[in-house]
Write a protein that binds this DNA or RNA. Structure first.
Length: 277
DNA sequence: CTCCATGTTCTCTG
DNA sequence: ACAGAGAACATGGA
């Protein structure tokens, strides 16, 4: 379940392996992954281009190829790997870029939920999927007042911070960790949060995402980063996947419930509803 | 066999 | 029209 820290780890580890390589050929095994433009146009435009950079916005990877940008979203289980150009197709391999150095950049996705959009510079940020993506809590551009304004909603605060239009980069794991850090019950209606608690929420989001990036992300279940490298932030998880275990702050038993349609881990003592601190 | 998990977008409801 | 809830997507594992 790659969230901002995992996607950032992919970005950092992958770029040195493809930097300045030219795409000699593109093989699409699962055409539905290419959302824009049609597959033939996509192949024609990308062939012959060179990887100039990988950027990231929230959970989106932005591959700069020539003057074009490939926006890739890994959704739940998307991964990239490098292998020899003549290696046979693996199970769950959906896309392959044959590179000028004899290696191939391959995309894998068991769930097939990942997406790719190819954009020109003039529409990159003004069209889907990046059009409405909010700033990240760790970005210089993060605007606290805009964030507070978007929390004026009746939704549970957990639903609000999972919404990429409100704040970007946070998924189910870090949402739980951030709310625990801020001592906020996940079901608290977003508009009931005081300005001080919103401040705390934004600070916790920044601290936790930065720390997770430093740790190379979180490795749980089957998720592994590019090259199969494991992140280590799971060692710092305070609530996520710890149902029935002791709270590291108060020692009481952590609970699991469903909020915003998502499995939600929290401490009923440290994260009381209506708490004012 | 059934149910669950997961991020995002689409569709339905009030 | 709006916000919010729920379904859909795909597939492996419990």
């Amino acid at each position: 379940m790659p969230e901002l820290p995992e996607v950032e780890t992919v970005r950092r580890s992958l770029f040195p392996l493809i930097k300045n390589r030219t795409i000699e050929n593109v093989i699409v095994y699962f055409p539905r992954m290419i959302k824009e433009p049609d597959v033939e146009t996509f192949k024609r435009r990308v062939r012959g281009q060179t990887f100039k950079a990988i950027e990231r916005l929230g959970k989106h990877l932005l591959f700069k190829v020539g003057d074009l940008t490939m926006i890739v979203h890994l959704r739940m289980e998307g991964k990239f790997m490098i292998k020899a150009i003549d290696a046979p197709k693996d199970k769950h391999e959906h896309l392959r870029f044959n590179l000028s150095d004899g290696q191939a950049l391959c995309y894998y996705d068991v769930r097939k939920f990942g997406t790719l959009h190819l954009k020109e510079a003039n529409t990159l940020y003004t069209t889907k999927p990046l059009r409405h993506v909010a700033h990240e809590p760790i970005s210089e551009a993060f605007d606290f007042n805009a964030f507070a304004e978007k929390l004026k909603s009746d939704r549970p605060v957990k639903a609000a911070i999972l919404d990429q239009k409100v704040i970007s980069g946070i998924g189910n794991i870090y949402a739980d960790e951030i709310l625990f850090c801020a001592s906020i019950h996940p079901d608290t209606p977003a508009r009931e949060l005081s300005r001080a608690r919103i401040k705390k929420l934004a600070e916790c989001a920044k601290t936790i995402l930065n720390k997770a990036v430093e740790s190379g992300g979180t490795t749980i279940r089957t998720y592994k980063n590019a090259l199969g490298v494991d992140g280590m932030f799971q060692l710092h998880l305070n609530v996520h996947m710890r149902e029935g275990e002791a709270c590291k702050k108060c020692g009481r038993t952590l609970k699991k419930k469903k909020t915003a349609g998502r499995g939600t881990y929290f401490c009923p003592t440290c994260q009381k509803k209506g708490r004012k601190t």
